[in-house]
């Protein structure tokens, strides 16, 4: 059996139940070229059987995949790329609609308005302002709001059947952490100047001159290293949480599949446990999706706040 990890990794197809998407290849010529090249001896029937339920994402002309999960061409469009666009479209729809309501300056009315406005105000009042300081926080709100809801939407897509979590791929969380790092660096440089920003990495200490010459360069090196490590951990934390949650979900669901066809009493006991367990873990995942989006944006706020204030 293929590794279950493949179910949570980025791929060049969407997977749905087999009966919903059948490939009826009658000759090898109908099979996509990269698959034919990778499997010179497979028959059309074998391709049909292997690809049933897999909706291949149409690629630009000239883009060549290596296999269903990898490509050496940077233009290849993967499932997570499509899902990011979906998340972005949903967010644009929701918040442009919300903006039309809030710009009136009226009091909030209705579930939609109250739900999203309470989240926006939570990020502003409980995350951004305490972490960055009331004076500077509002400048960063558009970034933090976009970060929070983008991460949240990507996390939640993992709970939508046949979709997946883009935040369970390192590339995505890395890019988001880079956004935080670059924002902190850019704003730090604007505020203190390039030299000032670099020197601001040393915490203020009252040291005798001799000791300062010895210690301060070392502390500076550690702090700068720490800056990069902190942002790397920001990316890895979100990635690990999403991957771990999906793996737990997969293993509990996998129990039912691995017992499939076994003696009926074992199957009868395992399947309900698997279904019950999956439901419970899905609820936990729902919580984790919100929690990790909150943690990500909270730490981003702290890092940005640290970058634009004196140590």
């Amino acid at each position: 059996m293929a590794s279950p990890i493949l179910h949570i990794k980025d791929s060049y197809y969407f997977e749905v139940p087999a009966f919903m998407w059948r490939h009826n290849y009658t000759s090898r010529d109908e099979v996509p070229e990269f698959l034919r090249e990778a499997h010179p001896h497979a028959t059309p029937e074998e391709f049909n059987k292997a690809l049933d339920g897999k909706i291949l994402i149409p690629q630009l002309p000239g883009v060549k995949l290596k296999n269903l999960y990898q490509s050496d061409d940077w233009r290849a469009v993967s499932k997570f790329m499509v899902l990011e666009l979906v998340a972005a479209a949903i967010l644009a729809f929701v918040f442009i609609r919300l903006a039309g309501m809030i710009r009136t300056g009226e009091r909030p009315k209705g579930k939609f308005w109250n739900l999203f406005e309470s989240m926006l105000l939570f990020i502003r009042d409980e995350v951004a302002r305490p972490a960055i300081g009331k004076h500077d926080a509002d400048k960063f709100l558009p970034l933090l709001w976009t970060l929070f809801f983008f991460v949240l939407a990507c996390n939640l897509l993992g709970l939508v059947p046949w979709a997946g979590s883009p935040t369970a791929a390192f590339g995505v969380t890395f890019a988001l952490a880079v956004v935080t790092l670059m924002t902190g660096m850019a704003c730090g440089v604007i505020k203190f100047g390039p030299v000032g920003y670099v020197m601001n990495q040393i915490p203020h200490m009252d040291l005798p001159f001799i000791l300062a010459i010895l210690l301060k360069p070392m502390i500076w090196a550690i702090e700068v290293l720490g800056l990069f490590i902190k942002h790397a951990v920001l990316a890895v934390r979100l990635l690990a949480n999403m991957v771990a949650g999906h793996i737990v979900l997969l293993s509990i669901m996998g129990m039912a599949f691995s017992i499939e066809g076994a003696l009926s009493p074992y199957w009868g006991i395992t399947a309900p446990i698997s279904v019950f367990g999956s439901t419970m873990i899905s609820l936990l995942e729902l919580f984790v999706a919100f929690l990790q989006a909150y943690v990500f944006v909270f730490l981003s706020s702290l890092f940005i706040g640290a970058a634009i204030h004196h140590h």
Binding site: A2, S3, I5, L6, I8, K9, D10, L35, A38, H39, A42, E46, F47, A50, L51, K54, K66, N67, L68, Y69, Q70, S71, W74, R75, A76, S78, F80, M81, E84, P166, A168, A169, F170, G171, V172, F174, A175, L176, V178, V179, V236, L239, V243, I247
Partner: peptide, 25 residues
């Protein structure tokens, strides 16, 4: 079928894809 020619990163959950990172950015 689908990943016979894959390299060692296939089953690595922390595989880094630069195209995905740039796209995400």
């Amino acid at each position: 079928i689908g990943h016979a020619n894959a390299d060692a990163k296939l089953e690595d959950p922390s595989e880094f894809k630069s195209s995905l990172a740039i796209w995400s950015l």
